[in-house]
């Protein structure tokens, strides 16, 4: 798997802790959207099932907030995280 054909996936805060994962990589596929990637991760079972909709998950692609129908490109950085609570 070449680095050029992968997508980096990052998790933050409660998701990072409960999934015990700060980041992982997946292979890019044609027509893969952020929403489809989220569903495929939820299918891993265990604590990953919470990604299927039990809690709101915000999505950023290349550090910009976006919607689930965003199509992912090789080299993209996707982040999934709970609603933000700074300030």
């Amino acid at each position: 798997m070449s680095a050029d054909n992968t997508i980096t996936v990052k998790f933050f805060a409660r998701l990072r802790e409960e999934l015990d994962t700060a980041s992982l990589t997946v292979e890019a596929e044609s027509d893969l959207t952020a929403g489809k990637l989220l569903q495929s991760l939820a299918a891993r079972g265990g604590s990953w099932t919470q990604l299927a909709g039990a809690h709101p998950v915000m999505i950023a692609v290349n550090q910009v907030m976006t919607k689930p129908d965003t199509v992912l490109q090789p080299g993209d950085e996707v982040a999934f995280f709970p609603p933000v609570t700074g300030g």
Partner: peptide, 12 residues
């Protein structure tokens, strides 16, 4: 301040 609270990626 208001917009930061709901759009900047910080978690407490």
């Amino acid at each position: 301040m208001d917009a930061l609270k709901t759009s900047a990626p910080f978690w407490k």
